[in-house]
Amino acid sequence: MSATVPGILTTPTVVTFVIPGIETLTTTLPSGYNYESATSAFASLTSKLAAAATATATSSNSHRLANSVWPYVPSFPVALIAVILYALVTALLIARMFQYKAWWFVALILGGIMETLGFGARARNTQDLNNESLYKMQLCCTILAPIFTAAAEYILLGRIMGYVGRRFSLLRPGLISWIFIISDAVSFLIQVGGAAALLARPDLNSQSTPSQIQRAQNLLNLGDNVLLAGLAVNLASFVIFVLQVRSYSIPCANTHPRQVTYFDYKTRTQCAITGPWRTLLYALYVSTVLVLIRQVYRVIEFSQGWFGFLPTHEGYFYGLDSLVILLASAVYIWYWPDKYIPGDRHMRLGENGTEWREMTKRERKAQALEEAGRKASSGEVSVREVKDGDLE
């Protein structure tokens, strides 16, 4: 570019103007054009346009939030991805369940179905932020679904311990499932009560009276506190479960202290027969750690109130809740329990490595009655009674 007078173009010149956040413009300025004054005016105009565009976008988001129950604008693409992933994982788990006829592990499936429904409602809610029904549905599903995932973990640990040997367990394997499931049920009912308080919150609008607004706020606080109590009970129960299953440091004879679980330690030091079941135990380790991360996150989140740091940042919800529960469930696509332990819960692993089946109470009773009937018909019972009397 050449000019005899400062700022005046002597030849046609191609120039580019950038409007931040809006568009990039390219044009050709003719000869004789006052370049300096034109570009100065254009720069002033574009900065005003950019500021106006930013203000409009901010105002639009603020308007959307002002008329919704969300503390942030939720992401539709991320919610849609969550729906697809949960639906896929749940479908694969259902296929596994039917493949092995493992109906006892259905709690894991129920959790996946609830998560899928919850994120489906969330994805739809991102397109209609004023729809409180969708908001309440996604909130209840994503809060309550992991309870079923945890219940599946409890049942699985009881199955593994029952198969390997009761002598390696702090508690009788049959009790483990029931103790923690009852605890989960109590937690579930408390959380349902909290969710009910949130669902009872009346819809507010510009015509709402101060008393209606105050009542809505009271129900919101009540629901938040009750949910926090339910989550705390759930966390306490799961921590106790983790202490039963998860690792802690125990010094073993002639070895360095190592990280083992009580059950793992007992089976290693008391000559338990190893086998595929230990692989399943390690899969359970991974899954329970993931569930524990979610439990801790939710308690901290609700303890911060409805508009705290965690509740108002969507990324933490997906990273510390949705993703970890998805992975905790997906673990069993590859490590389905029936691939590593028998599906029959009465099968036992003998000390010599052979499997045998323990009779149920009904089977033992039937066998005893059959034996008694046989002996009575042959006269063995009376003869034995006489001999026993003689011996005494």
Rank of each mutant, 00 (worst) to 15 (best):
V5R: 10
P6M: 03
T11V: 15
V14W: 09
V14Y: 12
I19T: 12
T24K: 13
T27V: 11
N34V: 08
Y35W: 09
E36Q: 14
F42Y: 12
F42E: 14
A43P: 00
L45R: 11
S47T: 11
A50E: 09
N61H: 11
P71L: 02
V78N: 10
A79K: 03
Q99V: 10
W104M: 06
I109E: 02
G120R: 05
Y135T: 01
K136E: 09
T142Y: 00
I155G: 01
L156E: 03
L157G: 01
I160H: 04
G165R: 02
F168W: 07
S169F: 07
L171Y: 12
R172V: 14
R172F: 14
G174S: 11
S177A: 13
I182R: 11
I182Q: 07
F188I: 00
L189T: 11
V192L: 13
L204H: 07
P210E: 08
Q212R: 08
L228N: 07
A236Q: 05
A236R: 02
R258V: 11
Q259H: 14
V260L: 15
V260A: 12
D264E: 15
C271Y: 13
W277A: 05
S287Q: 04
V289M: 03
R294M: 10
V296P: 01
Y297N: 03
H313P: 02
A328W: 02
Y332K: 00
R345M: 13
H346V: 04
S377F: 10
